[in-house]
Amino acid sequence: MNSQVFRLTLPILFGYIPLGMAFGVLFTTQLDYAWWAAPLMGLVIYAGAGQILAVSLLAASAGMLEVFIAMFVLNARHLFFGLSLLGQFRGAGWRKLYLIFGLTDETYSMLTTRIRSHDKAHEQDIDFRITAFNQVYWVIGCTLGAVLGRNVVFDSTGIEFALVALFIVLTIEQLKALGDAFPVWTGAAAAGVAMILLPAAHQLIGAIAIVTAVLLLQYRSMRSRSGTESSHV
C-alpha cells in the first residue's frame, strides 16, 4: 500500500521538496535562529505560504496577537476545505485529528479527487498515509534548505511548477468525475476576479469566498426550483 501511496504523492514530492527548501534557505539566510527551527516549523505549523510569511514576521519580531491574526487570515481558505470533508473523515478515529492538521492545499486536492472504493476504513487509512507522506516531503525540504542554506547547488529553478501542474490535472479529473463544468468555470472566474481586485496575499481566500457564495446561490435556486424550499432555512 505504501508504494501505491508513494506513486500517488510523487507530484507532491516534486513540489514540496523544492518549496520546503526555498523556505529553509530563506529561514537560515534571513534569520539568526538555529537551523532546526525550520524543520520544527514544517512539523508543527505545516503551511507553505504561512511559513514563508512567518520568516518576515520573525524578522520583524512581531507581537503574538499580530502573529496569530496574520497566520489565521493567510490560512483562512482552509476554513472551507473541511466543509467538503466532513463525511469523508467521519469515524476516522485517532487518525482524524492528523488528517485535519495536515489539510494543506495539495493534500486537500489529492484527498478530494482520488477515486475511492466503498471500504471507508481502508480509504481513510490511505488518506492518512497520503497526508503523512506529504508532510514528510515538506519536512525533508525544510531541513535540506535550512542546512544547506546558500550552498544549494542543483539548479531546480521552475521545479515548483509541479504543484501548478498537479492542480491542473486534478481540475481535469474533477471535471470528468462530475460531468458538470459549472464549478470549474466558477472557480476559474472567481480566481480571475480575485486576482484583479485583491492583493496577492488575499486572492485565494477572496476567490474561495466568491466560489462558496456562488455555490450557495446555486443551491438556493436548485431548491426553489424543486419546490422544497420551506423545510430548511
Binding site: F80, F81, L83, S84, L85, L86, G87, R90, D105, Y108, S109, T112, T113, L163, V164, F167, I168, L170, T171, Q174, L175, L178, D180, F182, P183, V184, W185, T186, G187, A188, A190, A191, G192, A194, M195, Q203, L204, A207, I208, V211, T212, V214, L215, L216, Q218, Y219, M222, R223, H232
Partner: peptide
C-alpha cells in the same frame, strides 16, 4: 454532515477550489 447544503458544497466545492488554485498559481 447530512444536511443537503453541506452535501451540495461537498460535491461541487472541490472542483471549484481546484480550478481556482490552478488559475491563481498558473498566473
Amino acid at each position: 454532515t447530512e444536511h443537503p447544503l453541506i452535501k451540495h458544497l461537498g460535491r461541487y466545492l472541490p472542483a471549484a477550489v481546484m480550478a481556482l488554485l490552478a488559475t491563481v498559481f498558473l498566473q
